[in-house]
Design a binder for these strands. Structure first.
Length: 408
RNA sequence: CUGGGUGUGGCGCAGUUGGUAGCGCGCGACUUUUGGGAAGUCGAGGCCGCUGGUUCAAGUCCAGUCACCCAGACCA
């Protein structure tokens, strides 16, 4: 991408209402634009990061046999009334809207109901199961208070996966596979070291659910951990019974704050029963389908990673999700010409700062935007066929032959 | 929702005892610059969140309202 062709402009100062680090940096660097409290636009750099996060998640889910769909955001109340979840007392985050022809619709805060219902069309026998179906979808939740940049919004991007099984054992087996896949996903996203599977309250049908919590000072959740025993639990389940279950005592646990980036739930037949999703087993007996659901907050992840990897100069993206690999700058007539040539060969992975600015401004923006490799080709370095490469993460600078840049 | 705070050009801010807006950055043109956010000259851009009121006169005072931020409560 040519910087001169985008509409993006970096800001020296963050807007006053962006006090959270993630919101401030992502706004200054041109990744997001705030529409209103808890509602953001994703700009060209921003959607590249989002798409990179999605690609990693998609890759790992496809590997364990999941199929991708895209369900509707508008919801039919009749469906949700069957599970009792259209009620504002039951689910207090609904955005509801009226049809001009009369009647009410909801904007989906989650998708158990529509997917479960939809599958009645396609599932009738044990031979049709199991199924693992996921989507990346914008969720709408009428939060009492949006806050912390893109960490808690009213409209946000989420990956939600639902699994459908003939038995509890099969659900358990897949649940474990998802646990492992999530571990790989957070590892690849660069937050494996600080993201932990955490015991949380399980709802009606199982004792626990699991959250994936990334330790983070501005995280909203309080968790307790014991590194030696590899135990992390949400404060909501910090009680004597749970401590006994897990074999730890209160004084062996350390408190910290964390951001929930994913969660996994065993739903069993909580939704399949009221919605009537059944299958015929080998004996031709009708049974409820067992279900699980598994979420990852995609836009929140972008905020968590921005928050976690940044310094006083700006963002520091992990290479796997950076919007570009190279931040290319040409200096001098010959250097600029050589930069153009490099850009023409590597357009897709390069942000070419071809704006008519002095080098200092371009360097400052490179640090703010946080692309892993800053590549400077100048008349000086060009004499030896070299480019200067600066690693955003460490600040380390080295000279690299231009034709060897792609090996970085 | 409770408490606190803030709304003035794209962004950050100032605006004294009420007299119809100013600074920095950014933006446009020209000139000189060109490896760490350049300099000069000229210029464009705001009715001061919104509504109502007081007054000869309101960004400045009063009332109401909306929005945004922080803390808390809440988070299927």
């Amino acid at each position: 991408m040519r910087f001169s062709k985008t509409f993006i402009k970096t800001l020296r100062e963050a807007p006053k209402d962006e006090t959270a680090k993630n919101g401030a940096l992502l706004t200054r660097a041109g990744y997001i634009h705030k529409e209103m409290a808890g509602v953001y636009d994703y700009l060209p750099f921003g959607i590249r990061v989002i798409e990179n996060i999605k690609a990693i998640i998609r890759d790992e889910l496809n590997k364990i046999g999941c199929e991708e769909v895209l369900l509707s955001a508008l919801q039919n109340p009749e469906l949700w009334e069957k599970t009792g979840r259209f009620s504002d007392t039951e689910v207090d985050v609904w955005f509801k809207t009226e049809l001009s022809a009369g009647g009410v619709l909801g904007l989906a805060p989650t998708h158990e109901e529509p997917l479960t219902n939809m599958l009645k069309t396609y599932v009738s026998s044990y031979k049709d199961l199991p199924l693992y179906i996921y989507q990346f979808q914008t969720k709408f939740r009428n939060e009492l208070r949006a806050k912390s940049g893109i960490l808690r919004g009213r409209e946000f991007l989420m990956k939600d996966l639902y699994s459908f099984h003939t038995s509890e054992e099969d659900l358990d087996k897949f649940y474990n596979e998802v646990e492992k896949a999530y571990g790989r996903i957070f590892e690849r996203l660069g937050i494996g070291d600080s993201t932990f599977e955490t015991f949380a309250s399980g709802g009606i049908f199982s004792k626990y659910s699991h959250e994936f919590q990334t330790f983070l000072p501005v995280g909203e959740d309080t968790v307790y951990y014991n590194k030696d025993k590899s135990i992390v639990l949400n404060e909501e389940v910090l009680n004597d019974e749970v401590l006994a279950d897990l074999g730890v005592s209160r004084d062996e646990l350390t408190e910290t704050t964390a951001a929930e980036v994913g969660n996994i739930f065993k739903l069993k037949y909580k939704y399949s029963e009221p919605l009537g999703l059944k299958f015929a087993d080998e004996k031709n007996e009708q049974k409820n389908v067992y279900m699980g659901c598994y979420g990852i907050g995609v836009s929140r992840l972008m905020g968590v990673i921005a928050e976690k990897f940044s310094d006083e100069k700006g963002l520091v993206w992990p290479e796997a999700i950076a919007p570009f690999k190279y931040h290319l700058i040409g200096i001098g007539a010959e250097g600029t010409k050589a930069a153009e040539e490099f850009y023409n060969k590597h357009e897709e992975m390069t942000l070419f700062d071809d704006r008519d600015l002095r080098p200092g401004e371009k360097f400052a923006d490179a640090e703010l935007i946080g692309i892993p490799f800053r590549v400077v080709i100048s008349d000086k370095t060009l004499k030896d066929g070299m480019a200067e490469v600066t690693l955003r993460k460490s600040g380390e600078t080295k000279l690299v032959k231009i034709e060897e840049l792609e090996e970085l």
